[in-house]
Every structure is written in C-alpha cells, then in structure tokens.
Amino acid sequence: MKKCLIYVEKIHPRDAVDLLDAVDRLYGSENAKVYGFGDEEVLQSLEGYFDVLIPSGNEQLDPYNIKTLTNRLEELHEAFIFDSILILATHIGRMLAPRLAMRLQTGLVADITGINADGDRIELIRPAYSGKLMAAITIRGTGPMMMTVRQKVFQWEEKRVSNSQWNLFEFKDSGVVQKKNASMELLRSEDKEGFTDIRESEILVAGGRGTASYFVELESLAKVLNAQVAASRKIIDQQIAPRRIQVGQSGKTVNPKLYIAIGISGAIQHIEGLKNVEHVIAVNKKSRAPICSIADIVVEGDGKEFIEKLLRRIRRGDEI
C-alpha cells in the first residue's frame, strides 16, 4: 500500500480532488492510502475522497505562510513517510513545493501533464521550451516523489471511501500564533480589473479589413472562447478599434496558443506580429490569401457567417 499526501489549498479544494487521478495513474487508486492536508473547514467538504484527513491546526493557517507550511508538511512526512507528495501548481504551490523538496532532500517535478507508471518505474511527463518539447523525468533517491500539477490537467469524480478517517495531528508549533512573527505577510488582495493586454491572452480572435462592417461580432466569439479581440492595421486605420489591440510590426507582437484571423489577408507587417503561435485558423473569402499558408485550418467563406455558425455550434455543445 502506497502512501500519498495531497496538499489541499483553501481556495482550490475541488482541484485537489482531481489529483486523485494522478494517484490512480501512479499506483492504482485501490493501492494507495491518500492523505489530505488543509484547513479543517475545507477538508470537511472533501469527506469520502481521501482516506485520511489531516486538518492544518487549531487555527487557520495563513496560506501564504510558506515557511510554516513547509515545517508542518515536513513533520507529517517524518511521521508517515509518504511515497509521494502532490501539490497543485498554483501560485502558492509553486513556491511551497520546491521548498519542501529541498527540506526533505528529495526530487520534485514541476507542472506534470502526464504519468507513465510501469510497476516501480515511474516517468513524470512535463513540457519544456514553452511546450516545444516534452520531457520524461524520473526521480532519483529514496523519495518521497514530489510533483506539482496544473489545474484541469487531471480529473477525478468518484468518492473512494465511505468514511474518511480524521487525524488530528499535533504539530510542534500548534497554538503558537503565527501572524505576529511572520517575516512575510499578505496585506491585501484585489481583482485584476479592466482590459488585459492582448499579449497576455492565450486565444485571440483577430479581425482584418474584411470584418469592418461587423467587427463588433468578434467580441461574442471571443467571449465563449475566453479570448481577447485583436485587430489588423486596416481596422485601426478606420478607427473601428483602438490601437492598443493592433497586432503587427508597428503594433503589438503576440504569442497566443490559438490565433483566429478573420478577414485578414496576412500582409507581412501583420504576420511579423505573430511569434510562436501554436495554431492558426484563417477565415477568408480568398483561400489563397497569404495568411492561409500558415493556418492549420483555412475556412473559405464569409467571416460573419463563420462567427454566427460557430457560436451556435459551440453553444449547442456536445449532443448525442
């Protein structure tokens, strides 16, 4: 029976449950005893998923008190000797996991996207060089095997046990009020507001001269794809859109994963604004517009029709 620890972050409880999928791929869910560590309140909503639930202490631990978290996780490992420790690759997770790995003098693989388990030989797969390359990593040493996982990479739905066992572990520093001695403290947080720079978007829906008469429609497509709207120079020239969303040599250079170019011919000055784009869908009346030579899919036809039909199809979703 393998022992596995999963750190449950306060604001991401459901994502922590998804890590059970990783455990399953590592050992087979029935071969693993999974421990969940986090705030008591949060753990209460996760009954049935973890074999053991360990609340973080008798007071709520500041999620950003990374030093204390590291101490507590070290204590847990000393007590239970886990085979593996899984942490979500969130902002906190990415700071916590490496610290813990160094503390435990063990190997850590970041942002895994896949697992190849062949008995005791386990390969953790992760992207490198901005995804151009995939690497298979093995952990050396005696363990525990540590890994961070991005949200939504794995999925897990089912409960695994009828009752989770609660372990009210006594940490060495339990009861000691943390905040006053903290050398680092979260003071406040606010939502990021307003316009996000198109350079930060993973998906861009861009309109060119052909979309002048219906440019506003691009926004609806962008919305369902969680994307941003961008434009070629011709649209900016006609003052249909502000310059800050202009893609091109004299505008912004973007590197989204997906670039949907509607009514854009693909003049070199525009193309020079695209760097390292993974996928391009070009929608154009002329299937031989230069931009089509760099597209994965060329949609020959009217851009407005394309947007309307695609929107309908996406909203319809998966029907049998």
Partner: peptide
C-alpha cells in the same frame, strides 16, 4: 502607422 509603432516599440 509606422510613427505610432516607433513610439510604442523599440523597432
């Protein structure tokens, strides 16, 4: 447009 581009970018 080139003018605006030179204002915005180092190119």
């Amino acid at each position: 447009d080139e003018y605006e581009g030179m204002l915005e970018n180092d190119s």
